[in-house]
Nucleic acid binder design. Structure first.
Lengths: 146, 146
DNA sequence: GATAGATATTTTAGTTGATTAAACTATCAA
DNA sequence: TTGATAGTTTAATCAACTAAAATATCTATC
């Protein structure tokens, strides 16, 4: 399959199909990690959006999450109930709320981050040589934000 | 980072963090594809579990999905309402139901599969050489079922 | 300074999806 | 007939999300 003359699109498709299968296969691992921390996927996304120490306004959170402002209220409510986030006031404009992580939130986020960064068991099946080749190759993948 | 003397675990971690970031970044693309077909992630998972032409029993579906039998009933109900799946009887044991795809279900599944197999825009940012290296590397990734 | 918008967030009310527990029905097999 | 098996129903719950109305606050203007 896919000799040296294959088109770039065909190449990308082949790569993608493998990666996609790997994403699917490793999904349960990620669910498990979230479960261990008693977090929903949404909670996790929210935690990662709250990395600015000064906190972020509800509006900017809603925008980042691509959802309704009232939905952001709900998400932050849940984090707050869990003691992971808190609403602070912005001196100078009492309409806005700055949502920031509590010490527990910071700790939880760090622990979650650590666990999510740990490779799923599937990846450890590869031997050293293959991992090295893979590392070199995935370093070329485009990166967003962070 | 990570010279030739890094441990296998460190190597795997480095690979994984890149892959994981890519999974997150390309998530919206997958959501969009599902949305275009008016399917939830659950529906999609269900469609892909129904590839056996003879159909599968409710019990085996519940097991495959790691859920309660009544949940499987609900999922199949939804597929049936959409005209994508149907319950058939097993000659010889009238207790069991064999769930199979309808012609529309087969068609929908094929279309979904085609669209999900299409690489996300992020991947097309790589040039040919990088894609070739990546192809070679990802071919070593372990594969489940399918 | 009063007031008329504009802004930021919350509340209320409702929808859909995902999921479980428990009770129930139908059927099979010994 | 009795017990096991396959599946469904019912009654809940939680998560995710939207629309519309309400509240509080700020800002610019008359």
């Amino acid at each position: 399959m896919a000799g040296p003359s294959s088109t770039k699109a065909a190449l990308a498709a082949e790569v993608w199909q493998r990666l996609f299968a790997f994403i699917i296969d490793t999904g349960p691992h990620r669910s498990q990690v979230l479960g261990q921390h008693d977090l929903t996927p949404n909670d996790s996304r929210a935690l990662f959006a709250l990395d600015v120490p000064e906190g972020r306004t509800m509006g900017s959170l809603a925008e980042a999450w691509g959802c309704d402002a009232s939905n952001a209220t709900w998400v932050v409510d849940r984090l707050e109930k869990k003691g992971l986030a808190e609403r602070r006031s912005l001196a100078g404009d009492r309409r806005v709320r700055l949502v920031g992580l509590t010490p527990l939130g910071i700790k939880t986020k760090a622990a979650l981050s650590r666990d999510l960064d740990r490779p799923p068991p599937e990846l450890l099946e590869l031997d050293r040589t293959d991992l090295e080749a893979l590392r070199k190759a995935v370093q070329k993948l485009p990166q967003r934000r962070r």
